[in-house]
């Protein structure tokens, strides 16, 4: 810091140190968690040699298998549903100039980002428990519905960003060539929009996969997802099995994020 670097205007004293510290603090716990998932011993803090034992245990655990399948099914449905409706909404609210009530639509779409999750969770608990009583249905539909709803803003944002960056000339040209609006959408708009839609679907998928609070409140008997299963485990036995599950989920998230980065990079 005492080095004579006064002409590098971007350097501020201590900033680099704190920044590196931040990265270390952010990653040290995650790295520890990953390392101990390969622990041969049965402790989460005493090293007993390298082993894949806990991955085998986790993958053979019927409850983990069920929860994983359930998580994936819900996330898939939520991604498809939220991305479909978000695409329509993005088409409706972008490149059309301002119209009456647009702000209201924005607010409603972004509402899940603003309301604390616990409040939504409690609201859904109340609402769905009376629907369950009235209809007798207590399947996965409630979780899919809830997840689809709070994933909408995450799917909407990249699609809207993509639409705003798109030139309308192609569509005008198509219309000039007597393409019907549907044809224009199918052959011109949609292909151009696709990277945004894929990116939106990925974010929605991750958000659904990671949800804890709303799922915890809405789930019925035997509807644990991977995160709620882990929440139950965290208060009990701490074996490297939880580390193994976490690491797998972590790897899946990073994989999707890299794919996401590649998809969005291509558009630039």
């Amino acid at each position: 810091m005492a080095k004579p670097r006064a002409f590098d205007v971007t350097t501020l004293p201590g900033f680099t140190f704190i920044a590196i510290l931040s990265f270390v603090l952010l990653y040290a716990p995650i790295v520890t968690l990953v390392v101990y998932s390969f622990n041969g011993g049965n402790s989460v803090n005493q090293w007993g040699g390298f082993s894949l034992e806990w991955y085998v245990v986790a993958f053979n655990n019927a409850a983990v298998q069920d929860a994983t399948m359930r998580s994936l099914i819900i996330a898939l449905w939520a991604a498809v549903i939220s991305t479909s409706v978000a695409t329509l909404a993005a088409l409706g609210t972008t490149r059309r100039g301002k119209f009456k009530g647009q702000t209201v639509i924005y607010i409603i779409i972004n509402q899940p980002l603003m309301v604390p999750e616990i409040v939504t969770a409690v609201a859904l608990l109340i609402f769905f428990s009376s629907v369950k009583l009235a209809t007798g249905y207590s399947g996965l539909g409630y979780l899919i519905l809830a997840h689809s709803a709070f994933c909408i803003p995450f799917a909407y944002l990249p699609i809207r960003a993509r639409l705003e960056g798109m030139d309308t000339a192609m569509e005008t040209a198509a219309a000039d060539l007597y393409a019907t609006p549907l044809q224009t959408f199918r052959y011109v708009t949609l292909p151009l929009l696709l990277p945004g839609v894929i990116a939106g679907a990925m974010l929605a998928f991750i958000i659904s996969l990671d949800n804890v609070v709303i799922t915890e409140f809405v789930k019925s008997a035997g509807q644990d997802t991977l995160p709620t299963y882990m929440l139950g485990q965290l208060r009990r036995a701490l074996t490297p099995e939880v580390n193994a599950i976490s690491t797998t989920l972590l790897a899946l998230t990073i994989f999707i994020l890299i794919a996401f980065a590649l998809v969005t990079k291509k558009r630039n």
Binding site: L88, A89, L91, Q102, I105, I109, A149, I152
Partner: peptide
């Protein structure tokens, strides 16, 4: 705009 946003709004 409203029509296209309707499915999202209903769900939300």
């Amino acid at each position: 705009g409203w029509l296209l946003s309707t499915p999202a709004l209903v769900l939300l």
